[in-house]
């Protein structure tokens, strides 16, 4: 399963009003580590779809949201629960490390 894309137009509905916890992957085409970590997020998305929704937000195309959430380094992963950021992870990491960071939301 590939994590689906969200935009400034769909962010409220897909992320802020989501009943489940949602991980937003802030990324861009020109960011090598973002592209490298993308398949790992897809894997986590399909393995834990019942607990955690994973979506991607392109910062190049959605700069207002990147600014709102004070993104200054990518890839940045923010977990939202009931519209609030509850966890931030920055930087591309191997799958076991990312799963450890997200343990509270996938187990």
């Amino acid at each position: 399963m590939t994590a689906r894309a969200v935009t400034e137009a769909t962010f409220e509905q897909e992320v802020l009003n989501n009943d489940k916890a949602v991980l937003v992957d802030f990324w861009a085409e020109w960011c090598g580590p973002c592209r490298a970590v993308s398949p790992i997020l897809d894997q986590i998305a399909s393995e834990h779809s019942e607990k955690l929704d994973i979506v991607k937000l392109n910062v190049d195309e959605n700069p207002n949201l990147a600014m709102k959430y004070q993104i200054t380094a990518i890839p940045a992963f923010k977990v939202f629960e009931k519209g609030e950021v509850v966890k931030t992870v920055i930087g591309a990491k191997p799958k076991p490390a990312l799963e450890a960071d997200l343990a509270a939301y996938i187990h």
Binding site: D60, A66, T72, A73
Partner: peptide, 17 residues
Amino acid sequence: LSGHGLSWCATCDGFFF
């Protein structure tokens, strides 16, 4: 501060500055 204004990747993060 890593990832919060401190960066090791200009191509990744320059955009935000």
